[in-house]
Design a protein around this nucleic acid. Structure first.
Length: 268
DNA sequence: AAGGTTTTCAACCGCACTAGG
DNA sequence: CCCTAGTGCGGTTGAAAACCT
């Protein structure tokens, strides 16, 4: 059956007008649901050779799929670390809270829910959780930075007002902060504490779920952070670093605030 | 049981970014 | 600096399943 999508594509099917033809448009490449055989081939190939080059993978593996399709199938379904089955109440609560903080940044939310994919989370949000959210939260959501804003920040196009940030943080910095550690160590400890706490979800996790664990665990780690982190340009570097800012700074600001290092969220 | 409607979720599309030539 | 390929992400679609009348 010729879908509306095909129809739509047909209308704009003048490839010279397009940046690049959709990868699956190429002759002979299969689309649609994956068969068990295809799954097997893909899994076997990746287990043996890895997936350094998605573009080349299907040809090498002998699959009549485009690389993009293979990547999607692997990341959303075949990856061994994917947790199948229904979302727990804790996971749902965590998604709601993370969505409150991060907006529609599904990959960032997924990064904090081990074993869950962005696609899965997105689906759960649209099918179940969206309905639960209070109306005023949708307003908040619309105010949240769009992806392009985040990307712009990441690429340096939109500068962060760190003076404002530091002004907001200073009152909290008067208290003595012992045990200076290197900044880089601090970063990694924060990150790993998040990962570990998320991975080690205990049975008694309460309704606030993962986020709370993250905050508690991060707050614990913060006591070891060099005080200069809060005062000099280190935090600025932290936020604007393309590697460290993949998930956006909103999350960290929230974490810092809840850890008691910020009175309120600064205007950034 | 049959049909219509709604929900779910895997998969696709296209945009945006980065890296490398 | 520009161009292209490769990749990641969020939005959207539509077939299948579930539910309702």
């Amino acid at each position: 059956m010729e879908s509306k999508r095909e129809e739509k594509r047909g209308k704009s099917g003048n490839f010279s007008e397009m940046v690049r033809a959709p990868c699956c448009e190429k002759m002979g490449l299969k689309k649609g649901p994956w068969t068990a055989e295809e799954d097997q081939v893909l899994v076997a190939y990746i287990q043996q050779h890895g997936h350094e080059n998605w573009r080349a993978l299907p040809k090498r593996a002998g699959l009549l799929r485009c690389g993009k399709s293979c990547r999607l199938r692997w990341t959303n379904y075949l990856r061994p670390d994917i947790k199948r089955g229904n979302f727990t109440k804790e996971e749902e609560e965590a998604i709601i809270k993370l969505h409150e903080m991060l907006g529609n940044r599904w990959s960032a939310i997924a990064a904090r829910l081990p074993g869950r994919t962005d696609n899965e989370i997105k689906n759960v949000w649209h099918t179940h959780l969206k309905k639960r959210v209070k109306p005023n939260q949708t307003v908040q959501e619309s105010k949240r930075r769009s992806r392009s804003d985040v990307e712009a920040t990441r690429s340096g196009a939109k500068a962060i007002d760190f003076q404002a940030f530091q002004a907001a943080t200073r009152p909290k910095l008067e208290s003595p902060t012992p045990l200076p550690v290197s900044l880089e160590q601090s970063y990694s400890e924060i990150s790993s504490s998040v990962t570990i706490s998320s991975n080690n979800k205990r049975g008694e996790t309460n309704s606030t779920g993962i986020k709370e664990e993250v905050v508690v665990s991060s707050a614990h780690q913060f006591s070891d952070i060099d005080q200069n982190f809060w005062l000099d340009d280190s935090f600025a570097s932290f936020c604007s670093s393309s590697n460290k800012d993949d998930d956006g700074i909103d999350f960290w600001l929230q974490v810092f605030m809840e850890a008691g290092h910020l009175e309120e969220l600064p205007e950034i």
